[in-house]
Amino acid sequence: MATPDTVPQPAKPARPKPPTRPGGRRRFLERCLGALSAAGFLGALYPITRYLEPPPEAEGASRVEIAASDIPFGGSKTVIYRGRPAIVVNGPNGFIAFNAVCTHLGCVVKWVETGQEFFCPCHGGKFDQKGQVTGGPPPQPLVAISVAQSGEKVILGG
């Protein structure tokens, strides 16, 4: 505080009371106010941080059924499984399914029928039919999802 002449002077200790008392009490109250305000501020912050958390939400279906006729032989279909995109392929070894999120930077992979492989359009990541990385930057294989065929239905998970 560079300009002491404009700062309001604490009460002059001219009264018969003990000279330190008013100023001392004021300083004490100032500290209390500071502490309480800080506590109040933090207290107000609590509901706000809680509010901004993702609200409780039902996890996406953990069992997804697709009509087998929806996926032609050699073709693929992307569906939502447990709230995230999953890719189902009708390949030479029957149906296979993977979490379609590329392990590199989160893009959604495509099934390339001609190459019989998964291809990530963002940075050219490639995965084989077992989900193993065969090219590009992805650090980890795709996560497989259990898949079963029951009559005319292909069932993911469950």
Binding site: P47, Y51, P55, P56
Partner: peptide
């Protein structure tokens, strides 16, 4: 309705 019923402290806000 979602804010008021589902979001934490949504009713307060």
């Amino acid at each position: 309705k979602f804010v008021m019923e589902q979001v934490r402290f949504g009713w307060l806000i």
